[in-house]
Computed example of a mutant assay.
Amino acid sequence: MRVDDFDFELPPERIALRPATPRDAARMLVLDGDATLDRGVADLPDMLRAGDCLIFNDTRVIPAQLEGVRGEAKIGATLHKREGPRRWRAFIRNAKRLRDGDTIDFGQKVYATASDRGADGSFALDFAGNEPVEWLLQRAGHMPLPPYIASKRPTDERDADDYQTMFAREAGAVAAPTAALHFTQALIERLNAADIGTATLTLHVGAGTFLPVKADDTDDHVMHAEWGRIDTATADRLNAVRKRGGRLIAVGTTSLRLIESAAGEDGVIRPFEGDTAIFITPGYRFRGIDGLMTNFHLPRSTLFMLVSALMGLERMQGAYAHAIREGYRFYSYGDASLLLP
């Protein structure tokens, strides 16, 4: 399909720079079959059925944004995928000033050597020393806010909490699974009381999620791989939900992509551990999920393509036009949508 088909105009003032307070006070646009409903995240228990199960990503965002120098040149690095115990693949700002073998000084006694430049301009960074890389990042890194927020304000102490979900446990993501940012303990308790279950998996979200699609046709776009895991107990539990007639509702496109990577043609979800680069566009037949809760996505993005695959491109274009007219807040810190095909 033409990438232009997934374009739309978004007024800049619709981009949220801070999350709603409290988190579950965000608005939620519900597309349930042919119905379009303006609701709030707090209404979620009433929008689902007893026996349904929400699937969360328990990845934890690490402070993966680094600023350093190579000689006189300023170098910015955004880590996006672990490649070894001390090696991370990183997108580099001012990459033209960096060569294989160069050492970058990120301050706070944190150094890394660049090598293996990729076709996308990324480098492998090997961190010096014996301390765990996570400790080094805590010392020298900061939260990797999406560029559409970071370009409008600096990262601050609030983001260290705001940009983590309540489920964050497994460190390794460089972007938050933002749909889950809307959840609070009080909301989970109400879901439990309504006999709506929860389950967790792990997908370490990479910075590639923010990259624009530069190809003219979706067939020519290459996704960046991300590492994920679904253990046997979780796979068995999710299959049992469906066998009983419940629906599996992914919370976030990251949860959805991992479930679809693990599901066979028969719809059975199997244990999974490894990389996935699944790219979902209209025409895809969903196998493992029955619905999706997600935020509002960028035009021409792989994520808008994914929701268009789930609900139909014309349906999503109309829904986004409605959301813009009605003042919904977009992107990572914005409002939610509940998509039930």
Rank of each mutant, 00 (worst) to 15 (best):
N192L: 11
A262V: 08
D195W: 05
G172T: 06
R49E: 15
I149M: 08
D219P: 10
V133L: 02
R99Q: 14
A42V: 14
E170A: 14
L238R: 11
R89S: 12
H182F: 03
G84R: 11
N130C: 10
A26P: 02
V3T: 05
G267S: 11
A95K: 14
A186K: 11
F296N: 05
A26G: 05
G129C: 10
G318F: 12
D162M: 05
L136W: 00
L98F: 03
G264P: 10
L66E: 08
M143P: 00
T218G: 10
F127W: 01
D161E: 14
I278M: 08
L313P: 10
G172L: 03
Y328H: 10
Y331M: 13
R153L: 07
T178F: 01
E189S: 15
G334N: 05
F91H: 13
H142N: 11
A179I: 06
P22V: 01
V268A: 11
Y328M: 10
L298M: 15
E314Y: 07
S151G: 07
A207M: 11
M28C: 11
L66S: 05
P12C: 04
G68S: 09
P63H: 03
N57F: 01
G118H: 00
D100V: 12
L191H: 08
T253A: 02
R285A: 06
L136E: 04
A90H: 09
A140V: 02
A119P: 12
A225N: 10
H224N: 09
T281L: 05
Y333P: 05
D7L: 05
K81C: 14
L79E: 13
N94R: 13
R23C: 00
A171C: 02
D46A: 15
I196T: 08
D266A: 14
L248A: 05
G208Y: 01
V41S: 07
K81Q: 14
Q164P: 01
E326L: 11
P299V: 04
R49K: 13
Y331P: 09
A16V: 04
V213R: 03
M305V: 05
N57Q: 08
K214W: 07
K74N: 12
T276P: 01
R86L: 02
V307P: 12
P299S: 00
M311F: 09
T254W: 04
I15N: 08
L37P: 07
T59K: 06
A171L: 04
I278V: 03
E260A: 09
A150S: 15
P144E: 06
A323N: 06
E189K: 13
P146S: 07
G141S: 03
E13A: 07
A179M: 00
L187S: 00
A277E: 08
S337M: 15
Q317K: 15
A193E: 09
Y148D: 02
L54I: 04
L256C: 13
P271Y: 01
V251Y: 07
R247M: 03
D7C: 06
Y331N: 14
D159K: 03
Q65D: 05
Y331L: 15
D102R: 00
R97S: 15
P341S: 01
I62N: 02
P22A: 01
R300L: 03
Q185P: 13
L137E: 00
L31M: 11
G312Y: 13
P63M: 00
R315G: 07
L54D: 01
K243G: 11
R117D: 05
I269K: 08
G245A: 04
A25K: 08
R325G: 12
L248Y: 02
I188Q: 14
D120V: 01
G76H: 12
